[in-house]
Design a protein around this nucleic acid. Structure first.
Lengths: 236, 236
DNA sequence: ACGCGCCAAATCGTACATTGTTTGGAGAAA
DNA sequence: TTTCTCCAAACAATGTACGATTTGGCGCGT
């Protein structure tokens, strides 16, 4: 049932500091989505009154949502001048993917040593869906790819690291959704995923970790290249 | 001037999402301090009205401060039930020092390749103060030790990583302030700092990185041992 | 062209209303 | 007498409304 089109990646249960307000989709989530998805431009002012009107609520919920977003680093405050959207630019992306390169291998290493038969079956199932989709629906690929890695990290004992990964992942996923995958990148993803599964099966923790480092590195570079290209196009 | 007793570690300028409200010490900072320093017990309820009264303000600033702290992970919210202090327990400490083990070596590697003569002089100056103090004033040691590592990380291009380090550092510093350093740990710190400076001078990035990994690892273990001991004492 | 002051706008703090949760005690059943 | 249930009143979180203070800009005058 979750294999059809309405597949939706969800965070590894555990730490996340949410605990929203009354209605299903809180103001916080909506604004956050708008920022990550790029519907709110970089550095755009976030006027409390406007947001309140737009979301059909009063100002206080918005103010609190903005503070929450500030704590998470998506919004920047200047005293007496309110909030602005923290630009998700190349620096931002580079920073978080570099952190991923450092953290994910460690998470992977642990997973390889703890993986059950079911885990591996799940990985193969998802990889099957990925290959079946074969980048036809890039959005779907994005979700599946995230699911793939979530299987590996979701049960890690270091909830902080896992949560950090998830937070970064959300951003990268949103950014990369706006681009297409190059053929080279597609091939690399498929190859590396298959190789990764093989390492997990064989229990090669070190090899798996090193592979993941390359995998994340490649993913980051790919996104940055696209961003650079787009910026160049915009400027030229 | 900063060498006397009123030495105060300050964050590496750059990203931090602060930008407080009117008065010098915002409600946010006060509550945050209370949590980190352990003046607010783990899981203690954070009642908005009380906090507002205690800090001589109305409820809204407190509410926003709590959301900010939630975003930073120091406070946990449950819908319609308000906020609680996120317990800084062994798991918490282990999580963040493990992340440090992953990130700090990378920061160090970069520093070694970028260190100027002034940087090295500054490191040696601080190390001199550390040896001069020789753990007589553990608080002062804590600040100096933080300053030592800040010199290395403050100019790193990856502001996210640097900020992450700083956030974690603040927590560890506060926790470790409640304990004394064992003799073994004291010796290790001195030795490793001196060795680190030597590596920086020689430009041995890899060796320095590996040493820092051990250094952070050792520091984390040390803190955890103390926490375990205290918990055992409390239980026994 | 350049400063000066006023005005619109938005943040920030205070007060209040509403809604949901907790608590303590009265009363019934054992 | 003890214990369990239920209810109501106190309590606190969440949402609304409003006034004060700051900021940035526009236009006026020189």
């Amino acid at each position: 049932m979750a294999e059809t089109s309405d597949f939706k990646a969800k965070p590894p249960g555990g730490i996340d500091p949410i605990g929203a307000s009354s209605e299903g989709a809180s103001v916080y989530e909506l604004i956050r989505e708008d920022i990550i998805e790029g519907r709110l431009a970089a550095n755009e002012r976030l006027v409390v009154t406007d947001l309140a009107r737009r979301h059909g609520t009063s100002t206080n919920p918005v103010r609190e949502a903005l503070q929450l977003l500030r704590g998470e680093g998506f919004v920047i405050f200047t005293p007496n001048r309110g909030a602005r959207v923290r630009p998700i630019d190349q620096e931002f992306v580079r920073d978080i993917y570099e952190i991923g390169v450092l953290i994910e291998p460690a998470l992977t290493r642990w997973f390889v040593n703890m993986a059950t038969v079911e885990d591996i079956a799940e990985l193969e199932r998802i990889q099957g869906l990925i290959e079946e989709n074969n980048f036809a629906d890039t959005f779907r690929h994005s979700e599946l790819d995230t699911a793939f890695h979530t299987v590996m990290y979701q049960r890690h004992y270091n909830r902080h690291a896992a949560e950090l990964w998830w937070k970064h992942r959300e951003v990268l996923r949103a950014v990369s959704r706006r681009f297409n995958f190059t053929l080279a990148r597609r091939a690399a993803i498929m190859r590396e995923h298959r190789e990764l599964i093989a390492h997990v099966k064989a229990g090669n923790a070190d090899e798996a970790a090193e592979l993941v480092a390359r995998h994340v590195e490649g993913s980051g570079r790919h996104i940055l290249e696209h961003m650079r290209a787009r910026n160049a196009a915009r400027a030229g």
